[in-house]
């Protein structure tokens, strides 16, 4: 890995950590949700696992060791009913929108579209879970 890759690697590692957290959050939220919302959270859990694994492979390709999931996560607010589950999903997806914007910014010009698309997708998922739209999502 060259020095020029360092900011990109740092941003990628933050995204790996973010997707680890999103996997946890999706499972946690699914436990509080029912019906179609529960199924939606479980589908997102699978999608976040795939995203995490893809990002991990990119970290490995740069010759680094991907960050591990935390041993445990702090709930940023009480998650003990369906509203809390939806709020957790909104929160984690809004945060991912900003995390992927960091990946885009740390990428070279002409290599940012994928991360920018991931940022927009996460932002849209956030409003789908009830987040307010923001001028600069996740910030």
């Amino acid at each position: 890995m060259s020095d020029a890759d360092a900011p990109y690697l740092q941003a990628l590692q933050a995204a790996v950590a973010g997707e680890h957290a999103a996997v946890w959050a999706s499972g946690r939220a699914a436990g509080e949700l029912g019906g179609t919302r529960r199924a939606q959270a479980q589908q997102e859990l699978d999608a976040h696992r795939r995203a995490r694994d893809e990002l991990r492979s990119r970290v490995v390709a740069l010759g680094a060791e991907p960050v591990d999931a935390a041993l445990a996560y702090v709930e940023p607010f009480p998650v003990d009913d369906p509203a809390g589950g939806r709020r957790l999903m909104a929160h984690v997806n809004a945060a991912l929108a900003a995390t992927y914007a960091d990946v885009a910014a740390a990428s070279e010009p002409a290599a940012r579209r994928e991360a920018a698309a991931w940022s927009s997708e996460a932002a849209v998922r956030a409003v789908g879970w009830g987040a307010e739209a923001q001028a600069f999502p996740g910030t």
Partner: peptide, 11 residues
């Protein structure tokens, strides 16, 4: 945990 769900802190 340092990597708690408050991901905005990462940025």
């Amino acid at each position: 945990s340092a990597t708690a769900i408050g991901l905005a802190g990462c940025t």
